[in-house]
């Protein structure tokens, strides 16, 4: 009888302990999604088929998307995702796009008619302007997602490769050909 009581008491005690622990150490959100999201380039370009990097991260965490759907992340990105998720790495799905050198959108300001269509598409609010006023790209905030190219009715937006300056230049590895 006493033994039974002791066991019941112990069970109750552990139950309380566990319920306390689950509340005290509760993890907000999904840590895996955050980890994947931190690895994605945050271009928000939608080339993966999802409306942004976070939705793709959610799909990856659920196992609904494949790891090779992010062209801006490139082959390195695929490799990192494979490592994080513990799956075999695979080549980038080139049907979705290819890895390109970093570029930013540039608006030909003389041709811009101020229609605001690009403003509405930009996922990071990197285009400045108002209806019937000239628009311009905030180069420092542009992720190079190219989403603004298609909606422009006068085709006045182009992608300009980011120029290397003495401040962004990095020492090459020995043996590499100097530009």
């Amino acid at each position: 009888m006493l033994a039974l009581l002791a066991v019941c008491l112990l069970f109750a005690l552990f139950g309380l302990l566990l319920s306390y622990a689950s509340r005290r150490f509760k993890v907000e959100g999904d840590p895996l999604v955050d980890k994947i999201d931190a690895m994605l380039p945050q271009t928000q370009c939608g080339q993966c088929g999802y409306p942004g990097c976070r939705p793709y991260a959610v799909a990856l965490a659920r196992g609904e998307a494949d790891i090779n759907q992010c062209p801006p992340g490139g082959e390195d990105g695929v490799k990192n995702l494979a490592e994080l998720l513990g799956v075999e790495s695979k080549p980038l799905d080139t049907a979705r796009g290819t890895e390109k050198p970093k570029a930013v959108a540039v608006i030909d300001e003389a041709a811009c008619i101020g229609c605001t269509l690009c403003l509405q598409t930009c996922p990071v609010d990197a285009i400045l302007g108002a209806s019937k006023f000239m628009h311009t790209v905030i180069a420092a905030e542009c992720t190079g997602c190219e989403l603004c190219l298609a909606p422009c009715p006068v085709d006045c937006i182009r992608m300009a490769p980011v120029r290397e300056t003495a401040a962004t230049w990095r020492w090459p590895e020995p043996g590499a050909v100097r530009p």
């Binding site: 999201d37 994605l40 380039p41 945050q42 271009t43 928000q44 942004g52 990097c53 976070r54 996922p123 990071v124 609010d125 990197a126 905030e141 992720t143």
Partner: peptide, 15 residues
Amino acid sequence: EREQADRARRRFEAR
């Protein structure tokens, strides 16, 4: 790159 990505994420989320 990481810092730029973080900024882009914040801007995207704010939007």
